[in-house]
Computed example of a mutant assay.
Amino acid sequence: MSTHRSQRNSGDHGSGRTSVRKSSNPLYRSSDRAQSWFGFLLIIGLVVGLPAAAISVGTTTLHTGMETVQTQNAERHPVKARLVSDAKPAPDPAGSGSPVRMPVRWTDKDGTRHQGVAQVAPGTKAGTIVNTWADRGGSITEPPMTSKQAVATAWLAGAVTGGATLTVFLLARAGFVYMLDRRRYAQWEAEWQLLEPRWSRRSQG
């Protein structure tokens, strides 16, 4: 008798486990499955695509930047110009002492005289030697880009690309979830239209 009871209890327990396994998550819908798979694919895309995009843009920017460094260093050269007149401070309510643009003169190695405008500190006296840069045409220009600046620009471009790629993936996920939610709400509304009359009759009874 005890053996029979043991087998029956064992059978009931096994049946219960099977029932729980079949209905472990009865609310899991096809839209939930689609959302899970889409999220999984997005993660794979991020793991593969984000580094690839950031490295590609960073490498391209670095290559372009190093070419600019070489070109500008070949086309620009440092000059020692002489300040023509005293550099009077420009009106500056904040009193920050910002550089002012003043006329300068210098002579090239071939004896050609040039005149231009360079930035100097306020209060600099006439005749002071000013270190600046000039292009091949003898015009004052900005210093050439350095290798460090090219590397920093490449890192920045890669970081911005990575951030933009992440934003696109997150927006894609948000858009997909929004579309699924609208579909779910529509399904819930349709089901409620069918069930609500039955519940109303039950409550009235």
Score class of each variant (00 low, 15 high):
S2E: 07
T3F: 01
Q7C: 05
Q7T: 14
S10K: 07
G11E: 05
H13W: 03
G16F: 01
R21C: 01
N25G: 01
D32G: 13
S36W: 05
S36D: 03
F40S: 12
L41E: 00
I44E: 01
L46G: 15
V48Q: 09
L50Y: 00
A52M: 10
A52G: 04
A54E: 02
V57T: 14
G58K: 07
T60K: 12
M66A: 09
T71L: 14
A74P: 03
V79F: 02
K80Q: 14
V84H: 02
D86V: 07
D86K: 05
D86Q: 06
P93D: 12
G95P: 08
G95L: 07
S96H: 11
S96N: 09
S98G: 06
R101N: 06
V104D: 02
V104Q: 01
D110P: 09
T112E: 06
R113I: 11
V117C: 00
A118D: 05
P122C: 01
G123S: 09
G127M: 04
T132P: 00
T132Q: 08
W133D: 11
D135N: 15
S147V: 15
W155N: 14
L156C: 08
A164C: 11
L166A: 15
T167A: 15
T167S: 12
R173G: 12
A174W: 06
Y178F: 08
R184W: 02
A186I: 04
E189P: 00
E189V: 10
L194M: 00
L195D: 06
L195E: 10
R198M: 09
S200Q: 14
